[in-house]
Amino acid sequence: MTPITEVEGRRLALSNLDKVLHPASGTTKGELLHYYATVGPAFLPHLRDRPVSFLRYPDGPEGQLFFTKNPPPGTPAWVTTAPVPRSEDPRARQVVVQDLPSLMWAANLVVEFHTPQWRTDSPAVADRLVLDLDPGPPATVVECCLVARWLRERLADDGLEAFAKTSGAKGLHLLVPLEPTPSEEVSAYAKRLAVEAEADHPGLIVHRMAKALRGGKVFVDHSQNAAAKTTATPYTLRARPLPAVSAPVTWEEVEGCDDPRRLVLLMDDIAPRLERYGDLLAPLFDPDRAGALP
């Protein structure tokens, strides 16, 4: 029998609570749902007013994974959806996770949460810039941290403030709060920055995606600033054998990273970090911290 629970007045059917979803740790779906309920107050501001794309992994990371932007079949009427610009379907809508019941409904589908750099009331106008630092083996997140430090200083030269989070996989993400700026302009600036980084550190950094170029280097992926692209939302779990989280980190942690294991943050690490630091990415919502592109 599927348990029925009530979340802020909404009735939810939560299924398969004993199912193991992260096999390396034995993490069950019930534990996953508890995680999202616990971190909801920090997670929801990063989801609110942004269309969500879901990477579903209902049978764990070794099962079928599928990416969807459309509201899944059976989406409750009380879950917010919003029109989004898509060339292939001008009537397209996507889920917008505005509250805890919607978050728990989505989490019950077993998904990664991915969001764009813009909000539903201003499509293709970004309020943040993202750089995805992806290491090519044998490089690791340690090399990503070196690149992040250089990028942080370079962004500061342009009056922009960077914040870091783990990708939840192998790399690191940098997020920069912006005054509302057309996504095309943000994309062009991010690409210039990646090209400049490679020119300054050709033995460490590459700005092109071709895997043949990336061995032992850090790929500075600037492409996620395009209006059609999304990035793993802060605090989302990733479809990995361990319940790894795309989690905010301090610059002290970035500067002191000499072992890749130090920046592997798992589900059980997040609540204590929130108690200690609060949301390290809260400045993204402060208009006084938003910068203008040069």
Rank of each mutant, 00 (worst) to 15 (best):
V264E: 15
V141G: 07
H114Q: 01
I270N: 06
R10P: 13
Q98F: 00
W78M: 03
L151Q: 08
T28Y: 05
L151F: 13
R289H: 14
T140D: 12
H222M: 00
I205Q: 03
W105A: 00
E185F: 01
E179Y: 00
V141Q: 10
L146F: 12
R128M: 07
R152L: 15
P248F: 01
H222I: 07
P90C: 05
K211M: 15
L263P: 12
D59M: 10
A239I: 14
H207A: 13
H173S: 04
P283F: 08
Q117P: 05
R11P: 11
A226M: 10
V142P: 10
W78N: 02
F54K: 00
W251S: 04
T233K: 08
C144S: 04
S15F: 11
D269F: 07
A227V: 06
K29L: 06
R289Y: 09
V125W: 14
T231M: 12
D286Q: 08
G278H: 04
F54R: 00
A282E: 15
L178F: 12
P73N: 00
G256Q: 14
P177I: 12
E196M: 06
G9M: 11
T5V: 15
D158M: 07
W78T: 03
P72T: 00
S187L: 14
G171I: 12
G278I: 07
P241Q: 05
T166N: 09
T27P: 04
K29S: 10
L33C: 00
S87M: 11
I4E: 15
P234N: 08
G215D: 09
H222V: 04
A148K: 12
K170D: 13
G9V: 10
K165T: 07
A139N: 06
G60W: 05
K165N: 09
E196T: 09
G60N: 02
A271T: 14
N108Q: 01
K19A: 11
V142L: 07
T230F: 02
K29I: 03
R56N: 02
H114R: 06
T38P: 08
A156C: 12
A162F: 14
E112K: 01
V96H: 03
R238E: 11
L263I: 12
L274Y: 09
A106T: 04
E198Y: 09
A199R: 15
L155C: 11
V97P: 07
C257S: 05
G60V: 11
E196G: 02
K69M: 11
A227S: 13
A290W: 05
L44D: 04
D121W: 14
Y189D: 04
V96S: 09
T80F: 02
P72A: 02
T38S: 10
L151C: 12
P71Y: 08
K69I: 02
S87F: 13
T5W: 14
F285A: 12
S246T: 08
G40W: 08
D89M: 08
G168L: 07
T230C: 00
P241S: 06
I205H: 04
P101Q: 06
H34L: 15
D268W: 14
W78P: 05
D59Q: 15
Y35K: 04
T250Y: 03
H207Y: 15
P116A: 03
T233A: 15
R93H: 13
M209W: 02
